[in-house]
């Protein structure tokens, strides 16, 4: 039971807002030592962990080209483009993105979209520009909210799309684990079929929330505007 102290370190560290990198390092050391690893083994575990997980940082390879394009106005052009589609509100645009992301993931194209390659340079500025067209310049908090929802559309689309594809990691993990552990012959196709109902629910639920974001923004910006007028009047 004592190894669960490592989990406690993580929870406390995040709750007290310490630097996450440090929290995770300490939790790893604590858990490793309590779990009976000697200090050298713990060091080796950190080394092996870093070496074996480099694929999650591979998106850094896109940063130079994205940075270069942003220097030449990519985000500005993304904003200009969305401005031509008058009917495309923030919510409608992000719902469209959610759908595309989900379909892409469902046919196995998980890396075609992503936070570095599509959300930062394209989807987030487009969502912001759609809101700005209706409401004018966005206050900082509202801008953060729109960007957060752009990131959420990417994640929800990916998570609940990829399992519909047969050869994705999670499906292979399920079949690999139960077929070797319990000696069954589970077909990836059946697992993928059972992922469809949740995929439909995910699009309906998150799409509905994205569409409601439009009304939410409207209300939030109206109150913000009303507040600034009252303070302006009070100051007079």
């Amino acid at each position: 039971m004592i190894v669960l102290l490592g989990v406690l370190v993580v929870v406390l560290g995040f709750a007290t807002k310490r630097n996450p990198l440090l929290v995770v390092a300490v939790a790893g050391i604590v858990t490793g030592l309590l779990g009976g690893l000697d200090p050298v083994k713990v060091l080796a575990a950190f080394g092996d962990g870093f070496a074996g997980s480099r694929s999650v940082t591979i998106f850094a390879i896109t940063l130079p080209v994205i940075g270069l394009l942003e220097r030449y106005g990519l985000q500005e052009q993304a904003r200009a483009l969305i401005a031509r589609f008058g009917k495309l509100t923030t919510g409608r645009f992000l719902t469209l993105y959610l759908g595309l992301r989900q379909i892409g993931a469902a046919v196995g194209l998980t890396n075609v979209f992503g936070p570095a390659q599509t959300v930062r340079p394209l989807a987030a500025p487009m969502a912001e520009a759609a809101a700005e067209r209706r409401h004018g310049r966005l206050p900082g908090r509202t801008r953060e909210k729109v960007r957060s929802f752009a990131a959420s559309a990417d994640n929800v689309g990916l998570f609940f799309g990829e399992d519909v594809f047969l050869a994705v990691g999670s499906i292979l993990l399920i079949t690999g684990f139960v077929n070797t552990t319990y000696g069954t012959h589970l077909e990836p196709l059946h697992l993928a079929l059972w992922a469809i109902p949740t995929a439909v629910c995910a699009f309906a639920v998150h799409g509905w929330r994205l569409l409601r974001l439009d009304r939410h923004l409207e209300r939030e910006l109206l109150t913000a505007a009303a507040q600034s007028t009252t303070t302006a009047e009070a100051n007079r």
Partner: peptide, 30 residues
Amino acid sequence: SGRTMLEAMGWAMLLPQMLATLGTIFQVSG
């Protein structure tokens, strides 16, 4: 340009790899 983005992101870039390591240690320690 890439460096500027890297500095803006800071340590957060490395957190996923650190967590993958923690996951392995959790597993090994039971």
